[in-house]
Every structure is written in C-alpha cells, then in structure tokens.
Amino acid sequence: MSGFAFNDLSASFGDKRVVGPLSLEVQQGQHVALVGKSGAGKSTLIKLLYERLTHQASLVPQGLGLVNALPVFHNVFMGQLDQHPLWYNTLTLIRPFRKDRDIIGTLLNGLSISEKQWVPAASLSGGQRQRVAIARALYRSAPMLLADEPISALDEPMAHLVMKALTDQFSTSVIALHDVDMALAYCTRIVGIQDGRIALDQPASELQAADIMALY
C-alpha cells in the first residue's frame, strides 16, 4: 500500500509552532500539490512526512542533498545503495559496472543531462543540480514521492518534462509547489497551507488558479 493517514502532524521551532497540529490522509494514486506562501510550513510538512515514510518514499529536498565532490553518476547511484552488497558499492565508487552505467545514462538522458554524467556535482548549474536530485529520486524507485519545490530552478519546458516524469513514475506523490499552474496541470489534489494549517483541500479539477491565489 502506498497511501497514508496521519492525525497528529505538528512541528515547532523553539516555542513557535510552524506546522499543525493537522491531519492528512493521502490515498494511493493521488498526486497532491502543497501550495501556499513561503514560510507557511510546506517544507516542514514534507520533512515530517519523510520522517514517517522513509521506507516508502523518495525525497527531493529543497537543498537537494547532493555530494558535491562525486560525479553525477554516483549521486544518482546513491538512490540504490541498499540494493547491493558492500563490495559492489565500493567497486562502483572506483569503476561503475556497465549495467548501472546504461540504466543511469538512460535516466539522465530523459532529463537532458546525460552529457554531465561524469562531471562532479559541484560544477553544475542550479537547474542541472535539481535534475540530478530528481534523477536520484527516480532511480530509487520507491512507491511514493515527496518533493519540495523540485522545479524551482528549471525553465518552463524542462519543468513540464520533469513534472510529467515524476507523476508518471510515482503512483502517489506529495509535491510542494509555488507554481500554481503547474500544480493544477499535474496534480490531482491541491492542499493549501497557511500558517502551518490546512486552509484548502480540494481536487484539482474543482479549482481555478484564482481560488488558490487567495492563499498568497
């Protein structure tokens, strides 16, 4: 199963409550967009969810979490370190196997960065870095996706490509987005966050961009 239902989500920073308490239930097959002003608590909510769903979810955090000194290939390969024995992982660090090179090469190709496969993450542009983190999440192929602004640094055609890839591969997802049009185009459900609480929760098909703008 890859849906979830949590009743007691809350988080504080010092004495200041940033999220919740709130309940959120997501069914398998739903693509949920979290929208709202920056600082509303979207990122914290994603983090909270990841803490509870680590075993079932791939995460694309806002900070991306790339290892700058490693090439793109290894950053992506890290998504499946649990699938191989230690010797295999260690050898891959020195010299990757053909099979993995092909799979990751194809994946990167789909995101139009295959030419960067052996370049250290440190020397990539913001948009390229973001796609590496996305490739890693795709490669991990967990049943669910948690993503925090995964397309913030991408141009429009690329953003569409990525959103499509993400919603195609993952059957269930929770994606924080500030781009309302994207949210409406690719997600099935919109959850609006305001001051750490749910201020809006409706199917995407029933909403217009203007309805959402009220949150901002």
Binding site: G65, M78, G79
Partner: peptide, 21 residues
C-alpha cells in the same frame, strides 16, 4: 553536509553510506 546521508534509502550499510555520503 549531513543531508546526503539522510536521503539514502533505508537499509544502506553504514560503510557504504560513509563511503558515498
């Protein structure tokens, strides 16, 4: 940076995590 190790799939061995992240 502690973030990369947090993102590794659960079940990754401590050594692999150390070597990569």
């Amino acid at each position: 940076d502690p973030e990369p190790s947090r993102l590794l799939p659960p079940g990754t061995s401590a050594i692999a995590s150390f070597l990569y992240a």
